[in-house]
Design a protein around this nucleic acid. Structure first.
Lengths: 138, 138
DNA sequence: CTACCTGCAAACGGTTTGCATTGCC
DNA sequence: GGCAATGCAAACCGTTTGCAGGTAG
């Protein structure tokens, strides 16, 4: 994603396209793997303060510009794409991440709701697979 | 679960059945909903120090006596039962939790592995549904 | 009796907040 | 020019660690 696209995306979401935010969005677009707060702060260390990273994450997540997912017990962030319902295959050894689609959540949600006494609707879900990648397989 | 069962369970897992640990296991058995660290510390406040709660959680999880799951961004714990593969339906408003079974993860994992270039095996998964419970439905 | 466990207090590290300054729009 | 965003420093809070005393086996 080039700088202008990143800026347009920020403005579309109602934000001022500052240098720091543009760098943040560009970074997420470039790596297209979920990033930890630490990784983001390190990558942007020449550009902005870690405190600003926290503030951007909070604002962008609320605005639906980024998605949060938990990997190895820590929150990670990636750009949110419209209509996107991908999930992660995570290596339990090296934390490598690969996306996959088709989690069948709709059917599972329907079945669970049917059986449930206390719930009336399902609005979202999380689904992740954990295993070993090729290079970590003994 | 009565006190003696709790003690037996602890000894089976290789622990000394202290008063604090017995109370911890009994508590989890009594509520049979995932509990946050805070909730556990509060429930056991007359029995043991919060620090001990942390130490028990760490030890019990490693021993496979309790399972961790993330609810509302915070870790929660429940007793682990053999062969158990249930998941949670969580109310996004009041955090009420209901269990459900049948997540279809086996089929999804098989399909994902087939498509994957980098992964060779899937050993575990997480799957949770988020929605509204009856009393939080407007 | 002895090794394991617990309580207390202090250290630790990640996250949040307050406030003055900067820089988009 | 005005208001939102940033940087810096300090507060904050949940978690971990060290150590001395207690308790289960």
């Amino acid at each position: 994603m080039d700088t202008n696209t990143a800026k347009a995306r920020l403005r579309d979401a109602g934000f001022r396209a500052t240098q720091q935010r543009t760098a943040f969005v560009s970074r997420l677009a470039a790596v297209h793997e979920p990033q930890s707060i630490q990784e983001l702060a390190d990558a942007l260390s020449g550009t902005c303060d870690p405190v600003t990273v926290y503030r951007m994450i909070t604002a962008f997540e609320k605005a639906g510009l980024v998605r949060e997912s938990t990997i190895g017990g820590r929150p990670h962030y990636e750009l949110a794409e419209a209509g996107d319902d991908h999930h992660h295959l995570v290596c339990t050894n090296c934390r490598a991440v690969e996306d996959f689609v088709g989690c069948g959540a709709d059917a599972v949600a329907r079945a669970a709701l049917k059986r449930s006494r206390r719930f009336t609707s399902v609005t979202s879900h999380s689904f992740d697979l954990y295993g070993l990648c090729r290079s970590c397989t003994a």
